[in-house]
Simulated assay, not measured.
Amino acid sequence: MEKNQMIAVCGLNCSECDIFRASNNPEIAQRIVNWFKEERHIDVKIEDIHCLGCREDRTKHWSPDCWILRCCVDEKGLEFCYQCEDFPCEKLSEWAKKNKKYEEALNRLKEMGKRQ
């Protein structure tokens, strides 16, 4: 993958994502399966813990129905959210408030936009 392909449409860094890394690491995948069982009381199979990134086969994407992916890529035909005339939209800004990694992703997108 090229460097920019490791950054998701939303700005998350795929190489830091456990689900992305679990595709090639059964220990990480098992840890995620255990987390779902203990924290969410959901049984998932180890083979379900995989993602090749936003730009790959959606059947191998952790969240093929991701609202950000649908909006940015499917509806607007963009590569990254920062390319949108509404960036950062209210929905993306609210998403970023939910988690430090999401906030970092939004900031990464802002930086990418400044370089364009």
Rank of each mutant, 00 (worst) to 15 (best):
L52Q: 14
D57C: 12
E56G: 07
A29T: 05
I46G: 00
R115D: 13
L69P: 02
A8G: 14
K91M: 11
K100Y: 08
P64D: 09
M6G: 03
N34I: 06
C81A: 10
R31H: 10
E103F: 07
V33F: 02
K60I: 02
E16G: 07
V73G: 01
K76G: 06
C89A: 03
E104G: 08
E27I: 04
A29I: 04
L109T: 08
I19P: 02
N4S: 12
Y102V: 04
L109M: 15
D65Y: 07
F20A: 03
F20S: 06
W67Q: 10
I46S: 01
V44Y: 00
F80C: 03
N25V: 00
R70G: 01
K60M: 10
C14H: 00
G11M: 07
V73F: 07
R31F: 06
E75W: 07
K91N: 08
P26Y: 03
G77H: 13
E85R: 12
L69D: 06
H41S: 14
D43K: 05
P88E: 15
K100G: 07
S63W: 09
D65T: 14
Y102D: 14
C84V: 08
I7M: 11
F80V: 06
D48N: 08
W67H: 03
R115C: 10
C14Y: 01
I42G: 04
T59M: 13
P64M: 10
E2P: 09
M1E: 04
K60N: 12
K76Y: 04
N24D: 00
S93G: 07
E104C: 02
C51Y: 06
R40F: 07
L52V: 14
E111W: 11
E2S: 13
N107V: 08
C51H: 05
V73Y: 06
V44S: 01
E103P: 00
I7G: 06
R40A: 11
E90H: 14
A22S: 12
R40Q: 11
R115S: 12
E104F: 09
E90K: 15
C10G: 14
G113H: 04
E103Y: 13
R21N: 10
A8Y: 08
Y82W: 15
E75R: 09
E2C: 10
R108T: 13
N4H: 05
F20Q: 02
C14I: 02
T59R: 08
C51D: 05
C66L: 08
K97W: 05
E111M: 15
D86C: 03
H61P: 01
I46Y: 01
P64N: 11
K76Q: 12
H41A: 13
C72L: 05
V9R: 02
I49K: 00
I49A: 01
L92S: 03
I19M: 11
L92E: 10
E56M: 02
K76I: 04
V33N: 00
